[in-house]
Structure formats: structure tokens, C-alpha cells
Amino acid sequence: MRKDSHGAKVPWHTTMAQVELKNVSFTYGDGGPYAVRALDDISITLGGSEMIGIMGHTGSGKSTLVQLLNGILKPSEGQVILDGTDIWENPKKIRDVRFKVGLVMQYPEYQLFDETVRDDIAFGPKNMGMTREEIETRVLEAARFARLDEGLLDKSPFELSGGQKRRAALAGVIAMRPELLVLDEPAAGLDPGGRLEILGSIKEYQKESGTSVIIVSHSMEDMAMYCDRVIVMASGRIMMDGTCADVFSQYDELLPVGLDVPQITHVAAALAKRGVDIGKDIYTVKYAAARLSEYAEEVRRRES
């Protein structure tokens, strides 16, 4: 965390990046006999200091969506607007977009390539043309965010454990100080402890940097725990967009599109059926437990 002249903590970016998708459609193999429409007329604005979760069944278009955000894919129709400018207005400048919008792909640990972890994390800042001192600052800062021990920096990426490798890959993107960080399934394949560790460090990063972070995930429980806003995709369209409470209270609509709600939400619904109504907006165990003790307290008071 940086500090201003009075020693107060300030976020990195005083202006927040805003990406706007305007009537975006994307078709794989456009014009060919096997054309598949992956996104169908999407309009949405992403940005602000928050953690945004995107969920949807396999093939719902969520990976296509995130690849449009930093110009890996170009929309077949519509515009991707970053801070007021269409990113494809000048295709030669698309590299600058990639510095602003950092993308951590699925299983990013397979993309580590340099001789040491330090060099691997430094790759982005180096390409941004930074000075040696600045690069070193960025590497240390990113390693801290990704909870990588400094002692690991001089090791070969191949000497790290699976979880450490994934965090090193994450550090490589954070080192560019992206205005918007996008992660595709950051916790896939990790054990419960590993999930907590990586998602916890991402959330911490989001809060400290004041940027917006987007995570794509299949885990409803993870969404519920970490995201401020949830976007649900189905068949190439945006089906829901709101807070966890908004989205998970509509579980009757989530099940048919191959999704689910956290198990605890089912428990709350089953409790309501039995006359124990603790609300429809239950999606974490902690909150459910707190509401239950309030409820029991209330019952006791009424009785006496």
C-alpha cells in the first residue's frame, strides 16, 4: 500500500478504469460453415473498486467475455470501450490495453518460463520500459500481494509447489499494476486451504489497490464469500447481474442453466419451509449462523 505525504494509505489508481461493452457479439469461425455464436449482443459496464464474479455453465460465453476485455479477441460486432476509448480504434495500441487490463488465464502456472521467479515476475514491468529500481519495487510488491516468500524469488519456477507456482503467475500480472485484473478460475484444482489462500490474497489485493477485480468461477461458495457483484451468463447472454443476495435468491432460475447456489442457501430455504424464516439472502455459513442466533433470541423474547 502506498502512502501519501501525510502517511495515509492511498490506492494506486486515483482514477478507476472502466470497461464498457456496447452491443458486443462474438462468433467463432465467423462466416465459415461451423460458425458458433458465443456472445450475443452484450452490453455491460465493469469497473469501480469491487470484486466482480462471473459465473455460467461451460460454453455460456464467460471465457470469451473475459478475453474481449483486454483485446485477445476482437468483437465480431459492437465495441469494447476502455476509459472512454474504443480499444480497437487504433489496433497498434492494443498492447497498452493489455498493460491496463491484466488477465490471469486458467492454470497460469504452465506459463511460467523464466530462469528465476524474480525474472518471471519482472517480465511485464520490463516490457513496459521501467527502470531497474522501479522493476525491483514492482516485483517485491507483487510478491507480497501474492503471498510469495522473498526467499523463493531466486529459485527456478520449477522448484515451487503447485500453489506457489500459481501465486508466482498471479504476481507476474499484478506487477504491471493493472487497472483491472481479470482471473479465469484462479482456484481451479486447489485444495480447500489453497483456495482460501489464493482467493484471500486476491481479495486483499483488490481492497488495497482500490482497483476492480473480476473472477470467473464455477464455485458458488467462493463467489458468495468474496464477490460484491455477481454476473450470471447463459447461452451467450447476461442472465443476471447484481449482488450475491440478488442472484442467489433466484435459485429456481439458476438450476435449469447448469448452475447451483451454495448449499447453505438451500438450507435457509428448507428452514423457511419449516417456519424458521431467516431471510432469502443467505449465502454464507457465518451469516446463516448469525441470523439463526438472532432468530432464536427473538423467539425466546416473544415467549417470555
Binding site: 438450507v267 455459513v285 446463516a288 449462523a289
Partner: peptide, 28 residues
């Protein structure tokens, strides 16, 4: 999550089983 919630209940002094994995049974 069913077990985790029951664990919280037990900690608050309720006499509940922990080994329930079905949302309906847990609510019951």
C-alpha cells in the same frame, strides 16, 4: 456447509448432530 452450520449451532449450546449432509435434514 450443513455440518459447518450445525457446528456453529452446537457451539451456541444447541444439542444437534453434526453428521447431516442434506439441506432438508439439516433444516429439520
Amino acid at each position: 456447509q450443513t455440518t459447518e452450520l450445525l457446528y456453529h449451532m452446537k457451539k451456541s449450546g444447541y444439542n444437534v448432530r453434526l453428521d447431516i449432509f442434506d439441506p432438508d435434514e439439516c433444516a429439520e
